[in-house]
Design a protein around this nucleic acid. Structure first.
Lengths: 208, 208
DNA sequence: GTCTATAATGAGATAGAC
DNA sequence: GTCTATCTCATTATAGAC
């Protein structure tokens, strides 16, 4: 009895569609993506898209839900952990940059789509992923300030700085690379270096 | 002889169109924008758009060129000036945040559109604005490192950190505001505070 | 210059054969 | 399940009156 014979290497049509839709939607957004293009990318026919996912909107929802879950799902496990503050910062930066390196279009995609629909609040966060909770991290920051281990800083500002430095270089890559006038290779190296550089930069800034 | 009688308050159709196109394109992107919508926003007729600008593509080019010029044009005058490094950082952050506060959708717009067209290199930078030149700034950083006034840091990393912290909170506002769970008012306050907070954060980090 | 009406095209969705 | 052919509608673009 050999079940799932072709599941591994040669994925089913549904999975091929999702993979293709992910690539196209993330690069071009809902409005810019074409069902035709997604079908081609998946190596199948346009009609088949509608067979598996009734409409473009439905297919988009699948991709968007997955995306939000990935972006926000990483926050809580790390920031809510019991690791000491400096270690936590290192873990967070390392983890987030690794993730975005694998999914460079994901942040820009989410942000663009949210801007397009100011009405739909972001609150339906992946309608399943637990709402990110930063309170643990914030408390930790406050505690370290009281203990005079770090300088006074609003935890919100610290978090913004951290996330900004991790994510923006990916979202803004084309602009940055042009302005810095560096090759792909060199830019990739800069990005990789940031896993170590950002924690140092942050900790230098806040420690007493 | 009163020339330009109505130029001030009541702008001509062409200017009304550009202003409307700016708002719509920046929020929804090329693919998401509708000529109908731009016409309505400008308080005129759809056909008139085509009278002034032959096509949607042409109108888009106008807006995009302006946008790139604004984003990149601010770099050189500040970073290329003769101000001392720390002062320059303060000036840059102050100026860039002020500008993005006035044009919150501009960075996301440019970044999204560049992603949609990986083919067209960004090199045609506003086809008129002088190519941003960071060499002065970079030299200054190197000098201060040699003089042991600041710690060793790659100038590129410093610049990325600076720009990231200034721009990302605007691009990622919806996400950040959800995660931080704060009101519009509070978030605006955080953004305003950053004009002072970021320079302190950066200088704390790099100064010896 | 500005409008209304309409043509032309692009793209999502469905029908029906295999 | 998968395809080809087709329908339908939204949207860009033009024609032509005023």
């Amino acid at each position: 009895m050999q079940l799932n014979k072709k599941v591994k290497v040669e994925q089913g049509a549904e999975q091929k569609i999702i993979a293709a839709a992910r690539r196209i939607f993330q690069r071009k957004g809902m409005a810019g993506a074409r069902m035709e293009e997604i079908a081609a990318e998946a190596g199948i026919n346009k009609a088949l898209l509608h067979y598996y996912f009734r409409s473009k909107e439905k297919l988009f929802q699948v991709i968007m839900m997955e995306a939000k879950g990935q972006m926000l799902g990483r926050l809580h496990p790390i920031l809510g952990s019991d690791a000491p503050l400096f270690e936590k910062i290192e873990l967070f930066v390392e983890s987030y940059i690794s993730f975005v390196t694998e999914n460079p279009f994901l942040p820009g995609f989410i942000l663009h789509e949210i801007n397009r629909h100011p009405e739909k609040l972001v609150n339906e966060i992946s309608s399943g992923a637990k709402r990110p909770n930063l309170s643990k991290f914030f408390q930790q920051v406050e505690t370290e300030i009281k203990k005079k281990n770090i300088i006074a800083i609003q935890p919100e500002q610290l978090f913004m700085n951290m996330l900004s430095m991790c994510v923006f270089p990916f979202v803004g890559r084309p602009m940055l690379q042009t302005v810095l006038n560096v090759t792909d290779k060199k830019f990739n190296q800069l990005l990789a270096d940031r896993k170590k550089e950002i924690p140092v930069f942050i900790i230098n800034s806040i420690k007493r």
